[in-house]
Write a protein that binds this DNA or RNA. Structure first.
Lengths: 226, 226, 226, 226
DNA sequence: CATGAATGAGAGTTCATTCAT
DNA sequence: TATGAATGAACTCTCATTCAT
């Protein structure tokens, strides 16, 4: 996994709403002071993302990560407070990257609000299939960095809810949106990502996204039902 | 967590479909030959469920589990091959218990198929709120016992799909059901369980279930929409 | 390995010379008082000989031995004081069996004293090839039951020396025999037993014995040499 | 026991014949990269040789070895893969040291081939008396590192046979030498080493060597006998 | 900054032995 | 006498973290 830009530790950005700040946003990292240092830190971060993604947090070891990164064991502690701090930093970064991957598609979408969610799902599924290790890292955060994990999902749900509310304000929704809807949609997305992205059945992601979109749009019941 | 009955190692049962057998179902345990032994094994299982639920797999230790169970360290290995084997046994057991908790509600339900899913969700949410540690154990299995974790979710999705197909055969559905629908529903349920069961916002579970049910039934779009 | 008769604990017998008594000859065993008990003890001894022979003392375990013997774990301590005591008992028994296998051939031999040693070696080689586990048990005694191991070799050497002295008295030897000769002969025998009995190259044991016998008789040098 | 030079992992060296390579010669050790590391590894090796020599493999413990070496427990695993690997490394080293102690005497010897073996035996007996723990370690390898043990004795026998064959080619021998002769000689040496070196009766090693040499030269029979 | 040796708390696991049934 | 559950000391090995060079 390659971390583009200096994204680390900038996972959350200002927003109007009830966003939860990622915990200790900056303190996880010890900022390098030279260009050489920056490269070392980057190498460790990339190696760690790969290692954690493959083996999980507990099976990964600092020695192994530094070997992978091609730096000395001791250098690790020049840039990270601890194994946990490294993991947290990664979770926050990954969280931001997922969001950044999906956001543009949402912005660009011309159709209705729900169709936008379908397009976003499609983008998300592709991302999951492409970056399985990110999925794994965020998932494992439930046990290793629970607060960051919560922050990630609370923020994601909050963003979904904001969009639903905006759509509702524009009269595009049949129901008054609530938190449960946001979590339901998020859960759908996550599990479809697991099944068709990470497990990768080879299924056509477009069809998966369409099925989910139809469900969101009209439900599974007979039309005009109740 | 109290394991009622001799449930352990009976996590899967016969079904028509493409069920995935839990891995090494029986071989994880060394069956006690006396009543006294049975009590000891039970004590360890209960202690382990509690410990794993609270602290997670890696923070839990065998010493601590046996102390909690009130037995000697060595006794652990009389009944379990390893820490991992114990965990697997628990995952299989928990998986069965979740299913067994929801199944009766589904069987008893009189209304339509989708409404049945809503009722099942309600039961599930209550269960999650009541047994937070089960949730945690199954979730952590993604990293500790991946095969059992897969088996759990593949089986659950398969059961949902079967129900949808049966409903479709009876003409109760507006669309032809597919695997994506099953995983979407499962994802919804799991995340609603997380948010309103485990995180426990204090929200009325009935309302949550109703919102989800409406979504499933009619979607979020304007009726006759698109 | 089948222990014939009640040989256990009768490994050494009266002799004129400087024989070393096996240590704690009797105390290793707890004598059974019933026929049933005798059978149980025998079963354990046989199982132990096989297990120790195959896996060595430290890799062998009491549980495994009792399983092999078809008796309960607890029964072991009815007949043996400890794992070590069992091993000692076996060493003493095996020591006696080796001697008992070779003795008759020596007694029956008609030719000269040195030829008798050759015949004895042949018998010994056959025995080693046939009972590899006995070899192993006696060898391992060097580390597990050093006193019994010493006793075995001191006695064996003493017997060889006695025979040499008798031969010398009869004028059959070219040199005055000493302890070094006895140990040299014993070492030859043991290593030939290792190479051609236990490692079992498939070589003709008769030829091996003949080569050794010639060496003993005339040495390797040119005849009439010095 | 002090390991002089960097002998470890150089147990076998080129030779014409059918030498058996020591098993995994190098892979047992994790080579230190600094001088400090080299000292630590050496300290552990010396402590281990002493400990294994005194108490045997199974009674020795890593903790105890590291305490003896004056290093932390963890340091052990910086340089050795496991207790077994350490033992193997030692066996290979000891095997080489025995050979290196005897070789020069053989090379320097002016007289006949058999007399050379006598001189070699003398050197060997002195070595055994001086380094009892080496004896013990090689012996115990039969059970702890059987492949290395075999390699040691097969190589030693091969070297003896080569010498006998060279002597035979020069017309110094009365018989055609064969493997049995080599193993017979080796067995003699080993057992004389045990009796007069390790058990240390206080006997004059020169006399022992002379007795053995006479046996080898002319045998025990009456001259012109058979 | 970089390096890698050193540290030691802590974990899982084994198994001889005891003892209640 | 037979059974097998229970016990816990002891052991090997791991790895995050520190620190001297």
């Amino acid at each position: 996994m390659v971390l583009k830009r200096g994204r680390i530790a900038t996972a959350t950005q200002g927003g109007k709403g009830k966003r939860v700040d990622a915990v200790n946003t900056a303190s996880q990292l010890r900022e390098p002071r030279t260009e050489r240092g920056r490269r070392t830190q980057r190498a460790v971060l990339d190696a760690a993302a790969a290692e954690f993604g493959e083996k999980g947090f507990h099976e990964s070891s600092i020695v192994s990560i530094t070997i992978r990164a091609g730096v000395a064991l001791g250098s690790f502690y020049t840039y990270f407070e601890s194994k946990e701090a490294l993991f947290k930093a990664l979770v926050q970064d990954m969280s931001g990257r997922v969001r950044d991957h999906v956001a543009p598609v949402l912005g660009a979408h011309a159709g209705g609000a729900i169709a936008a969610e379908g397009v976003a799902l499609h983008a998300f599924l592709e991302f999951a299939r492409e970056h399985k290790e990110i999925y794994r890292i965020i998932d494992e955060a439930e046990f290793v960095a629970p607060e960051d994990w919560r922050a990630h999902y609370l923020n994601t749900a909050a963003r979904i809810l904001e969009r639903l509310q905006a759509a509702h304000a524009k009269g595009e929704l049949g129901v008054e949106p609530c938190e449960a809807h946001a979590w339901a949609i998020m859960g759908m997305n996550v599990f479809l990502g697991l099944r068709f992205g990470v497990m990768d059945t080879g299924a056509d992601l477009g069809e998966v996204a369409r099925a989910a979109n139809d469900l969101l749009q009209d439900g599974l019941g007979l039309s005009g039902s109740d």
